[in-house]
Write a protein that binds this DNA or RNA. Structure first.
Lengths: 340, 340
DNA sequence: CTGAAAGCGCTTACAG
DNA sequence: CTGAAAGCGCTTACAG
C-alpha cells in the first residue's frame, strides 16, 4: 500500500473510462456539457484508480491556481508565528498556501535568495506571494506582499511600528536611570533594523544624552552575530549598564554572554530585545521586549495579498502595525543609582 | 518595479541570445557541450531579463526535483516545532522543502485530505513527502514518512513512545495520591491517541485501581473538543481529583474550564497534558506534561525521507522516539489527602 | 455531448 | 557544438 508504482494520470482514467482526456478534465473540473452517464463512468474510473490531478500540470496550463505562496529563508519562532497568522487569514478563503523554504541556506542570509524563489513560484504555481524579510527589493509578475521590507522598498508591505517601539524601549531604560545604553543593531538593509536604530538615537537625543557610536554593535539579526558584539561591549572598563538588541534572538544571546561573564541581570546589566518571540517569556529572567505581533503581521499580509490577487484591495499598501513595550524581569535601575 | 507583466520564459532568453531553448536549458543546467561564447551570450541574456526557470515546468519534465514536500492540515505550535526539526535535518542537504497547507480545512479534521494533497504533490513536484498526523493510511508513488501515523499504519513513520509517556503520567499522579483520574482522549484513529489511552489504562490496572469508563471523555485533539468534556467531568459530585488530557492543547482548555468553575489548580484539581508545546510552560500554573520533542519527530522524519528518496535507508522504517515526563506546577497531591 | 489538437515552460534523446 | 521535435500532465478553444 505504501509505494504504488507510477502515479495515476488523466490518461489512465480516460483509458479505463473509454473517453478522451478532455472529457475527464471536464468531469474533474465540473464543466457543463457532459452526459450523466459519461460523468458516472469517469467518476467510477477516478475512484477505482485513486486519481488526483497533478498540481504541477494543472497550474502550468491554467492562469489561476488559487494557491498563494510564501517564501522564507529560515524557519524560526518568528516565521512560525507569522505562519499562524497567515493561515488564519486564509482560512475558508478558497486559497491554499504553499511555503517554499530553501534548505541550503537555512538560517543564513543570502542576497537575492527570495527573488529567485519568488520568480520560480510566480511563473505558474502561485497567484501571488508573501515574502518574509527579504534581503532587498523584490519584483514579480504576480502580486507580492512583503513582511518587513528592505529599506526604501516600494512594494506592498506590512511592518511593525519599529520606530515607536524602539523609542519606548529607550525611554523605559532612561526612566530607570540608565545613561550608558549599548545597542546591537540588525541587518541594516532592512527597514525594521533602520527604524529600531533610529528610535534608539532619537530617544537618546531627545533626552539630551549624546549618542556614543562605540556603544553601537553591528549585528545582522542572526542570534549568533550578537555574541562577539555583546562580549565587546561588556569587556569594556566603562561598560554600558543596559543593552538593547534589535531582536529577541540577539538579546537572548547577549543575556547568555552576560551571565557567562558572571554579570547578573538585571542587577549588573539590563537587557532588552525586540519582537516578543515565545522564548522571551521563558528566559531567566524574562526578557523585556517590544511586542510586534508577528501573528498579526502574517494575518494582515495574507489579507492584503488575497485582496490584491482578487483585484479588490482598497487603501494603502504599506501597512504599519502598532507595537507595545512588554516589561519583564530583565530590566531594572542600574546599580550605580542604588549607591555603593 | 513591483509588477513586471508576464513572467520571463526560456523562449524570451533564447530569442534575446539568438539561440534555441535547448541551448538555454543546457546553460541553465550546466550541461557540457556548449561553447564558451554561447554560454556568455546566454548568461548575459538571463541576467538582462532576470530569468529564473519555472519550478512547475521543470518539475513536470524532470523525474527528480530535489524538492521534498510536507503536508499538514493545520498550523499550530505542534506543526511549527516539527518544521524547525525538518528544516534542520534538510539543511545543506540539497533538498528544498515545499509545505502544502490547505486553508479551507484549517484547524478542522477532514478525512482523506492528506491523501488528496499528497497525491497532487507527488505526481511530479516532490521526490518524497512527510505527512503530519494523517487521518488514515496513506499511499504514494514516491517515498512517504508519516509523523504520528494512524493506527495499524504500515508506512514508514516516526512517532513518540506514547505508551511509556502516558504510563509515567498516571504513575506520577498515583504517586501523589490521586485515585480518581479523569482522561480526555484524542482522535481514536491515531496511533498516538490509542497508546496514550492504553498507557492510562495499564498504569491504573497495574496499581490495582479499577478503570471507571465514565471518567473517560472522547476528545479529538482539537483543543475546543476538551471544553465540554472537562466541564462534564468537573460538574460531577464525585469529580476526579486529576485530569489527564491526551494533548497539551486539550489540557490547557481543561485548565481554563477548571478556573472558570472556581477550582484552583493544583489545589482542587491536578491537570496534565501531553506534547510539551511552548505554551505549556507559559500557563499559570505551568502545565505538567510529557515532552515528545516535536522537533526531533520532524528531524528524524526528514532524515529518513532523505535517505529513502536517495535509496540508501538502512534499518527499521518505524521509528519510536523516547518521551520524558515534565513536572510543573499543575500537579500536586489531592486536597483530601491533606486532611480537613 | 465529445474528441483531436495545440500549448503551458521546460528537458532530453536524436540528428546533424 | 547546436537545433528541431517529442513529451511531461493537464486545459481549452475549435470542430463536429
Amino acid at each position: 500500500m505504501a509505494e504504488g508504482g507510477a502515479p495515476v494520470t488523466m490518461s489512465d482514467v480516460a483509458r479505463l473510462a473509454g473517453v478522451s482526456t478532455a472529457t475527464v478534465s471536464r468531469v474533474v473540473n465540473g464543466r457543463y456539457g457532459v452526459s450523466a452517464s459519461t460523468i458516472a463512468q469517469v467518476r467510477s474510473a477516478i475512484e477505482r484508480l485513486g486519481y488526483e490531478s497533478s498540481l504541477v500540470a494543472t497550474s502550468l496550463r491554467r492562469s489561476r491556481t488559487n494557491v498563494l505562496g510564501l517564501v522564507t529563508h529560515s524557519f524560526q519562532s518568528y516565521t512560525a508565528e507569522v505562519l499562524k497568522g497567515v493561515m488564519e487569514a486564509l482560512s475558508q478563503s478558497g486559497f491554499d498556501l504553499i511555503i517554499y523554504a530553501n534548505s541550503d541556506l537555512y538560517g543564513t542570509y543570502s542576497e537575492g535568495w527570495e527573488q529567485r524563489h519568488l520568480t520560480r513560484l510566480s511563473g505558474t504555481l502561485t497567484d501571488g506571494c508573501i515574502v518574509v524579510t527579504p534581503w532587498g527589493e523584490v519584483r514579480s509578475s504576480t502580486p507580492v506582499v512583503v513582511i518587513d521590507p528592505a529599506r526604501d522598498s516600494t512594494v506592498p508591505s506590512v511592518t511593525a511600528d519599529n520606530l515607536t517601539g524602539a523609542t519606548a524601549v529607550v525611554e523605559h531604560l532612561l526612566g530607570l536611570g540608565h545613561r550608558r545604553i549599548g545597542f546591537i543593531a540588525g541587518r541594516s538593509n532592512m527597514a525594521a533594523a533602520w527604524s529600531r536604530e533610529e528610535g534608539y538615537r532619537r530617544a537618546l537625543a531627545e533626552a539630551g544624552v549624546p549618542v556614543d557610536p562605540t556603544l553601537i554593535g553591528r549585528g545582522d539579526f542572526n542570534p549568533e552575530s550578537a555574541v562577539p558584539l555583546a562580549r565587546a561591549l561588556l569587556d569594556r572598563a566603562d561598560r554600558p549598564t543596559a543593552i538593547f538588541a534589535a531582536s529577541d534572538g540577539m538579546a537572548l544571546k547577549a543575556l547568555e554572554v552576560a551571565k557567562g561573564m558572571g554579570l547578573s541581570v538585571p542587577g549588573d546589566l539590563s537587557v532588552v530585545g525586540f519582537d516578543n518571540i515565545p522564548e522571551s517569556a521563558l528566559a531567566e529572567p524574562g526578557l523585556t521586549t517590544v511586542d510586534q505581533s508577528m501573528y498579526r503581521l502574517g494575518y494582515e499580509a495574507a489579507r492584503m495579498l488575497k485582496s490584491l490577487v482578487s483585484g479588490e484591495w482598497e487603501g494603502p499598501t504599506q501597512v504599519v502595525l502598532p507595537t507595545r513595550l512588554v516589561v519583564r524581569g530583565s530590566t531594572a535601575a542600574p546599580k550605580s543609582l542604588l549607591g555603593p
